[in-house]
Amino acid sequence: MSGQPTSTRRRLRFGALEILAVGAVVLVVAQPHLVSMFDNPALQTAATVFVSIIVQALPFLVVGVLLSAAIAAFVPKSFWQRALPANRVVAVPVAGAAGLLLPGCECASVPVAGSLMARGVTPAAALAFLLSAPAINPIVLVSTFVAFPGQPQMVLARLVASFATAVFMGWLWLRFGRAKWLRMPERTHLEGSTPFHTFRLTASHDFLHAGGFLVVGGLAAAAMNVAMPSEWMEAISGNPVLAVLGLALLAVILSICSEADAFVAASFTSFSLTARLAFLVVGPMIDLKLMSMQAGIFGRAFAVRFAPTTFVVAVAVSSLVGWWLLS
């Protein structure tokens, strides 16, 4: 809000700090009223679910932004040119496979992928990494193994389907993606005077940015969690096509952390294994909180194209892999 500084404006200027201060006073005064508003059990449940999504995601987000800040501050740009094959078609699966190494959930991979792009990694490769890292890392595979006792093929199917979807999406971006859709993360103002200065500027910025969008996604997921009648689920489990689509859509709505989703998937026992695979492949790649975070970090033009395409590709690939490995 830059304008002509006039003497009147100088006197009446209300900055963010004042808003924060006045807001705090109003809220403290209104607190008893606020609490009684939350007497409604549905609203209370939604509030609990919302806070729990944020609390559960927070440590992963912190790890993610520390990692992305470390990439920005301490890893020279030339490293990525040497680490990734120059041929971009080959770089995509290599970056996808690197996802095996980041033990985190999807909240961590959004800032890391943004940081990789800002450091000159080709967007297609960074996107393959973004999609594969939360789905195929060791913690997720182990928890899938534990959640599906006696069905180790589920682990293999999850690995194959998630990796294939990530690589396919990377290649799709190479072939059809337009640079103008992607708002490259603007980071020049985060260059500090020393690497440690850059580190703390980037970490703070990325946390506040990605965290804000995590809140939007968490609110949406909590509202849907409470508003959705549980009978719908039972109604669709009998139809093989609806079952796959239904669980894929549920993965988008529930926005569960990828390290726990296998246990949830295992509980949908009335659904086919293929439908549950779709839940496990879609969830870490695209859900309400991720859509919100991707729109925030990479721009809306990117998110409105990338999110639905990822959903379609992930559902198609899991159906194929399920038919191949799980039947």
Partner: peptide, 24 residues
């Protein structure tokens, strides 16, 4: 230069401090 979205982080903070949602 700070991200505007950061304001949204006050929502969970306020929910925790003012409403303290109970266990399910």
């Amino acid at each position: 230069s700070g991200p505007r979205a950061a304001w949204l982080l006050l929502i969970p903070v306020l929910t925790i401090f003012l409403v303290a949602p109970p266990a399910l």
